[in-house]
């Protein structure tokens, strides 16, 4: 496993704490065009993802990249997460990974 550049699990609210750092999140795709995707975070905030998305997108999408601002990410890795994904569970994971159990995550 490559631990040289870890990415933090974030939801919409947590994103602002990691501006300039590498993050990963899952969004529900609301719309997309050539160079960007607009999506809804697991805690119902709007997130803009820039970069070059894959040609076809599923409902849920994981992106890994640098947090540009408190609501945008410049994505390097795009992964389709399919059409059924439990957003609530993911949101809880993000909270635990940045709170109580932060020490377990890199």
């Amino acid at each position: 496993m490559d631990t040289s550049s870890p990415s933090v699990f974030v939801n919409g609210a947590l994103l602002r704490r990691f501006v300039g750092q590498k993050v990963r999140t899952v969004i529900q795709v609301m719309g997309s065009d050539m160079g960007s995707v607009v999506g809804k975070s697991t805690d119902d905030l709007q997130i803009f993802v820039r970069g070059s998305p894959p040609p076809s997108l599923t409902t849920y999408l994981e992106v890994i990249g640098i947090a540009d601002s408190e609501n945008s990410i410049r994505a390097e890795v795009w992964t389709n997460f399919g059409d059924s994904f439990d957003a609530l569970n993911y949101n809880e994971l993000c909270k635990l990974a940045n709170g109580e159990f932060k020490h377990l995550f890199i």
Binding site: D86, L88, N89, E92, L96, E100
Partner: peptide, 16 residues
Amino acid sequence: FAAETRLLLEDISKKN
């Protein structure tokens, strides 16, 4: 898996 995760999360919050 989603249901199992929910169960685990419940357990974590109960323990906390």
